[in-house]
């Protein structure tokens, strides 16, 4: 089966998820004692989908998107974010992160794009969590399953959240859900980008397409195939090995910090409670 066919199947099975995801948001937000949610709205498809789901779940007056551009962010992204805000009749805040980012890097001119990107992601996270106090709102995550598995995100940056409604959906499935939610077409159709520099695209940076990533990840993770078995399906060995390695290497980003075990009840090891404990 080729990547396109796998992604079409992935998209098809995502048709029924919207009522479950809105029920998830409603239930998990309310039982934590909150009514409101806050998240970063980038103008990309993932945060747009989260915005539409959140409005359906908790009502537009309880949804607080924050647009946080840097001076190099494309005007297109900001326009697309505003399209979502208009379409859903939301009140959004725009907070430029340029002053603090530039101040920090003023004496670090040799800082790599990776450092700058991570810093921006963590700055945005810090603003979102600050506003979780302002709005008494829970922070929503906007990372999809493809990004989480590949580790394509910044730990304690865009990967940080209280609840993530889309973390079990591959990119192809996010696209299907976006279509069902009537997310503006300009957002559905543009190439995904972390928007850290001009003309950056996720696919350019990753070195492979989302379609290939989704297909290979699905076979490795959901179908529990070995690398050899995925290669037998007609995928390039180097690509499959790269993706498989990324899943393993980035496991740390999906877990809480490792604690040195000393007692008979160590948090995360044998002090085991659900997050929803007592809610």
């Amino acid at each position: 089966m080729q990547a396109q066919e796998i992604c079409e199947n992935l998209a098809a099975i995502a048709q029924g998820v919207i009522p479950v995801l809105t029920a998830f948001l409603k239930d998990e937000v309310h039982k934590a004692g909150f009514s409101d949610v806050v998240f970063g709205l980038s103008g990309g498809i993932d945060s747009a989908v989260v915005a539409y789901l959140a409005v359906e779940a908790v009502g537009k007056e309880h949804v607080h998107p924050i647009i946080m551009p840097y001076k190099l962010s494309s005007q297109n992204s900001i326009d697309d974010a505003l399209r979502v805000v208009d379409d859903l009749d939301l009140t959004a805040q725009t907070i430029e992160i340029t002053p603090q980012i530039d101040a920090y890097f003023a004496d670090k001119s040799d800082a790599t794009a990776l450092r700058r990107g991570n810093k921006m992601a963590r700055e945005r996270m810090s603003i979102i969590y600050d506003h979780s106090v302002v709005y008494h709102a829970l922070a929503l995550g906007t990372s999809n399953k493809t990004e989480l598995l590949l580790g394509y995100g910044t730990q304690f940056g865009d990967l940080a959240s209280a609840l993530n409604p889309i973390g079990d959906l591959y990119k192809a499935q996010i696209r299907a859900v976006a279509k069902s939610l009537s997310v503006p077409l300009s957002i559905q159709q543009k190439p995904p980008s972390a928007d850290l520099w001009e003309d950056q695209t996720d696919e350019g940076e990753l070195g492979f397409t989302y379609e290939l990533a989704d297909a290979v990840l699905h076979l490795l993770v959901d179908e529990r195939m070995s690398v050899d078995e995925v290669v037998e399906q007609g995928f390039d060995r180097e690509l499959v090995q790269l993706i498989s390695r990324r899943i393993t290497l980035n496991q740390y980003k999906r877990r809480m910090p490792v604690i040195a075990k000393l007692s008979s009840r160590t948090i995360g090891i044998d002090f085991r409670y659900p997050r929803d404990w007592g809610m």
Partner: peptide, 11 residues
């Protein structure tokens, strides 16, 4: 528990 990814509104 339901697994909603079945392609059907019913898991």
């Amino acid at each position: 528990p339901g697994r909603a990814l079945s392609g059907d509104p019913n898991s």
